[in-house]
């Protein structure tokens, strides 16, 4: 489990990107991390990875401070940045050099992913791939490395629509019960059926974190001709899209975009 206790981070002291965060990231979950542009999604992922250190508070991964960057903690995590480049090396060379650092690395998983994405497992020069293809290779590597925590920063960027579907399938089929993924995205609708939890970063640096099952039990999401009694509403073609307190006890599917708007506008605390 990753525990964040009173975590704040700022690039300039006057405006904290992340403010007094307190929440846990459990095992075997898929978290959707979302927020407006510049809300601090990448910053939060970097904090979880130990790439940058909190200005206040602590982040512990299975009891170890991630800022210590010890080999054991780094081996449990894999961070896929939003933008990256490979050196001029082949897939085999990349696997040969980097996979030994991950004790549970399974090359077959990488091959499965590349085949699913319609890519050859023998790529002579990774640097020559397009950004979307690079993302697919690194995602395959990340899944093959079998880390406890997969931190994916905008993994769907640059991927075409069929590839996004394959991405979801690969994640579901290759993630084990103990693995956790934190996926940052601003196209939450793409991942609606995949997520078990949602983390929304508010513009003021605070965080909204909840499991989808809790949200479904607490709120109902619907389209209605009237917005009366709604916790949050927004106009739609047929009237209003509304979020109401769930008093019937029946679960309704959580609509991520509506929830995002409700949280960022302060209607859902």
């Amino acid at each position: 489990m990753i525990t964040l206790s009173n975590v704040s981070y700022w690039y300039e002291k006057s405006s904290a990107v992340v403010r007094n965060m307190d929440f846990n990231i459990g095992h075997g979950r898929i978290y959707g991390l979302t927020g407006r542009n510049g809300a601090g999604k990448t910053t939060l992922l970097k904090l979880l990875y130990g790439e940058i250190f909190p200005k206040t508070g602590k982040i512990l991964a299975d009891g170890a401070d991630v800022s210590g960057r010890d080999a054991g903690t780094l081996g449990k995590m894999f961070f896929m940045p939003a933008e990256f480049g490979f050196g001029h090396l082949s897939t085999d060379r990349f696997i040969g050099l980097y996979s030994p650092f991950y004790a549970s690395f399974d090359e077959q998983v990488l091959k499965d992913c590349l085949e699913a994405f319609g890519m050859s497992p023998d790529i002579p020069d990774l640097q020559k791939l397009s950004s979307g293809q690079k993302r697919k290779v690194l995602l395959g590597f990340a899944l093959a490395a079998r880390p406890d925590y997969l931190l994916l920063d905008e993994p769907l960027d640059g991927m075409d629509i069929p590839s996004r579907d394959i991405f979801r399938k690969m994640l579901i089929s290759h993630m084990t019960d103990r693995q956790t993924a934190v996926i940052s995205t601003h196209t939450v609708a793409d991942m609606e059926n995949l997520l078990t939890d949602v983390i929304i970063l508010r513009p003021d640096g605070s965080v909204f974190a909840s499991s989808i099952s809790e949200l479904a039990a607490k709120y109902s999401f619907a389209e209605d001709i009237s917005a009366e009694g709604a916790v949050y509403s927004e106009p739609s073609a047929g009237g209003y899209r509304v979020i109401r307190k769930n008093i019937s006890g029946e679960d309704s599917p959580v609509r991520m975009e509506m929830l995002f708007n409700a949280v960022t506008k302060g209607a859902v605390k």
Binding site: Y49, G50, A71, F79, P81, F86
Partner: peptide, 14 residues
């Protein structure tokens, strides 16, 4: 960092 942003799981001493 094998690709910018990724840290190799090895200690500083190593």
């Amino acid at each position: 960092r094998p690709v910018p942003g990724i840290m190799i799981p090895a200690t500083l001493t190593e």
